[in-house]
């Protein structure tokens, strides 16, 4: 369950001012909006990486976070990066398969393209599992065909969780059950 009530957060300037958002359990909610409106801040607050200046933020359960950048460990291969968050080789392999990244297993991040790194990061999230997924522009670096495959494979997993999906794209927001414009 996610609670996000009357939240205020400021860095140099105020990003969120007394904002209340409703994220339905077991649904995919897309956060749409132009840059600088605090979409990523919402995810960072929900993940516990940031503390709100005011209001109430709570995400109950195991929270997985797909960052806007891949954040893969550079010294590890794709398989090792995914394996890091799960207990079994099988889960890691399955997750890489789901994200059309099985062929990248032995590659290190600096040997991959941006799209490939994003697929591996998605595989890491899939392998991690959890109850809540926070996804920051999860498919932005993927080409059309790969995006279709990955979305098709991941959608059953996403439907079984509470997902908060940040995007600029109306096309990606179309996967969501609810849309919030910030």
């Amino acid at each position: 369950m996610i609670v996000f009530e009357n939240v205020t957060k400021a860095y140099d300037g105020t990003v969120l001012d007394n904002v209340t958002l409703n994220f339905e359990d077991g649904k995919i909610t897309a956060l749409l909006g132009v840059s600088g409106r605090g979409k990523t801040t919402v995810l960072r607050l929900l993940s516990g990486l940031e503390k709100a200046d005011g209001g109430k933020v709570k995400a109950s359960g195991k929270v997985g976070y797909l960052f806007q950048e891949h954040r893969l460990l550079p010294s590890l291969t794709a398989f090792e990066n995914v394996r890091l968050v799960t207990d079994s080789d099988e889960d890691a392999k399955r997750a890489l398969d789901l994200c059309a990244a099985a062929s990248l297993s032995d590659k290190k991040p600096d040997e991959m393209s941006g799209g490939e790194r994003q697929r591996v990061a998605l595989a890491r999230l899939a392998a991690f599992g959890g109850d809540i997924w926070l996804m920051d522009e999860p498919f932005s670096a993927l080409d059309k065909d790969t995006k279709e495959t990955v979305v098709k494979n991941l959608m059953p997993l996403m439907r079984a969780k509470t997902v908060v999906l940040v995007t600029h794209s109306d096309e990606e927001a179309a996967f969501a059950d609810n849309i919030i414009r910030l």
Binding site: L49, V63, G64, Y65, L84, R124
Partner: peptide, 24 residues
């Protein structure tokens, strides 16, 4: 710092963090 945040979110143990992030 970005990788440290990632290890925090994914609850990667200190031992694994030491081996895969700090030592390299």
């Amino acid at each position: 710092k970005a990788l440290l945040e990632m290890t925090k979110v994914y609850k990667i143990s200190f031992g694994k963090k030491l081996k895969t992030l700090y030592i390299p």
